[in-house]
């Protein structure tokens, strides 16, 4: 997607790994190292919150709401709603159902039923655990999407350059990211060409879907090889095998105050998750009994 500009000619949106994000957003302008560390620390914090014997629902909920706020701030929430909401909604429902069916704990029965010889019960305790797991998973899923929707491939290349990763490795990684969009477009073109020739989509039978996918996979692989041969020739024509370094990126990010604040807050979140159960501190056991 082209970069959109306002009347003053300033870029309003930047193309990122997934979709695009506001150019002046606080989160978008964090250094890639900061985003990586934040992502790492918060993922551990939420996993710890989810795997406690009494999962920490409040902690997961807080992380979820903070992530949601940054999705809004970076102008990426609309893409999550348009492209991922139905997928995530199904995933959350499946998640909850599995935890209700396969985690038969507690005695305070809310609902029970039989399937053949099997007796299932949904208790206050199993419902609490299921909901806490869903919020933990949702917090992590939205956090991952936030990172991908606010980071540019050029930021990653820039960060690798700052880490003094050798040119060929850095270029290889940037080639992977750049090829993703190209191959997605190629796959879409092959599908359209096949529909135009009478190919059918969305068959329910897995074997029919495999047959349909096989018809896609051979041209896709052949096109991939063709692209590589073209790209190899183009790179060689530009003296790739002799070059020693990448050209300097247009925008070089520096670690700023906002980065330090983000790092301190994520380290604090991890410390909190290790040392306490926020739900229990706020009287969570009582809430369960109120269900």
């Amino acid at each position: 997607m082209a970069e959109r500009k306002n009347r003053e000619g300033q870029k309003k949106y930047l193309k990122t790994i997934l979709f695009s994000a506001k150019a002046d957003s606080l989160f978008v302008n964090l250094h890639p190292f900061t985003k990586f560390v934040l992502f790492f620390l918060l993922s551990i914090a939420v996993i710890l919150a989810m795997t406690k014997s009494h999962p920490d629902l409040v902690f997961s909920l807080i992380v979820f709401l903070v992530v949601l706020a940054f999705l809004l701030e970076s102008g990426t929430l609309k893409y999550v709603i348009k492209s991922y909401l139905s997928l995530l909604f199904v995933a959350f429902i499946v998640f909850l159902i599995w935890w209700l069916i396969f985690n038969q704990i507690g005695n305070s029965i809310l609902f029970s039923f039989h399937i053949g010889n099997y007796y299932f019960r949904i208790t206050k305790e199993s419902l609490y655990v299921g909901v806490a797991k869903v919020f933990g998973y949702a917090a992590m899923a939205f956090l991952t999407l936030l990172i991908l929707m606010t980071t540019r491939d050029v930021d990653i290349v820039d960060a690798l350059n700052q880490l003094k990763v050798p040119f060929k490795q850095t270029f290889f990684i940037s080639l992977i990211f750049r090829s993703l969009n190209i191959m997605e477009e190629d796959l879409e073109s092959i599908r359209h060409a096949q529909f135009a020739r009478g190919g059918k989509a969305s068959k329910k039978n897995p074997l029919s879907r495999i047959k349909e996918f096989l018809a896609l996979s051979i041209p896709l692989t052949a096109l991939m090889i063709k692209r590589a041969v073209e790209m190899g020739s183009a790179l060689e024509a530009r003296g790739f095998s002799k070059s020693k370094k990448l050209s300097e990126p247009v925008v070089k990010k520096r670690i700023r105050t906002a980065d330090y604040v983000a790092l301190i807050l994520s380290a604090f979140a991890l410390y909190t998750s290790i040392t306490m159960n926020v739900t229990n501190v706020l009287g969570g056991q009582i809430w369960t009994s109120l269900l």
């Binding site: 080639l175 991939m224 190899g232 790179l235």
Partner: peptide
């Protein structure tokens, strides 16, 4: 160089 490009594209 073609193999180098190909390996990146196949990962993509």
């Amino acid at each position: 160089t073609t193999q180098y490009a190909l390996f990146a594209i196949q990962i993509a």
